[in-house]
Amino acid sequence: MSDGFSAVKSITSDLFKIQMKWTLSFFSVVLVVFLLLDASWFFTRQAPDVTLAAFIFEPSKIYMLVIGIVPWFAYFTYFISHGVTRKDYFAGTAISAALLAVGLMGLTFAVSGLIHMIEPITGYAPIGTEQSLALISSHPAAQLTGTMIVLFLYYLAGWIVAIGFYRFHISGGFASIAIVIILLSITDAIWAQGNVIVIDWFRHIQPLIDTAALPFTVLVGLSLILAGAALTALWLSTRRTPVKMG
């Protein structure tokens, strides 16, 4: 460790490497399932009607929720015991989560691109009629951005559950689950166009807001406010938390 040592940078890169390894396994499994489901193509020669990007989106949300929970229990005490401050660990977790969302989507688009590139050889071309985020289907870059923000929010949700149980025991853990259900319902209401997966009745108030009519930048803005609120709550629960000496 030299004078130029930055704990935030180190923690970010360590946490990113660990979680990206898990993510690669997750991605491989989903890819295999996707290809197996599409195996019918070999017999029917009928192009499947879902793209990899659309197919992977829902599992990715659940995946991000889960790995939002795990690292806190596995690594918080570990790194604090190595002399890292809560502040730096917090920042490292947040940044690595954002990078993870980017990484997972980057991977998806890269592999989709690859499938597309080798189409002349394989003749295999899944054509997406069903998009991951129907709203922004017009522009791939917008779709990519929206997807990553949603994944990041799902990670934050998992993290809230982790802190809930770590800091506030069982009762706090269950309270945090309630908070997370609301957070994710709002997220889905903003982005999923009547396709709210967590709280069904959100679908009924959605037309009141009619997010479909809102411009893309407003949706991003709303999501970022939501993420900011989640991060603030996380930081307030973290900055003085006693370290569990397990």
């Binding site: 704990a7 604090i80 190595h82 002399g83 890292v84 502040k87 730096d88 900055r239 006693p242 370290v243």
Partner: peptide, 27 residues
């Protein structure tokens, strides 16, 4: 690892808790 409810702990005249310079020096 914890913050006391009262009183303070200093290392070289600086508060220890969440101190980025000091935490790596305490094990």
């Amino acid at each position: 690892f914890r913050l006391p409810d009262a009183g303070d702990i200093q290392v070289n005249g600086e508060p220890l808790f969440e101190n980025r310079m000091m935490m790596p020096k305490v094990n």
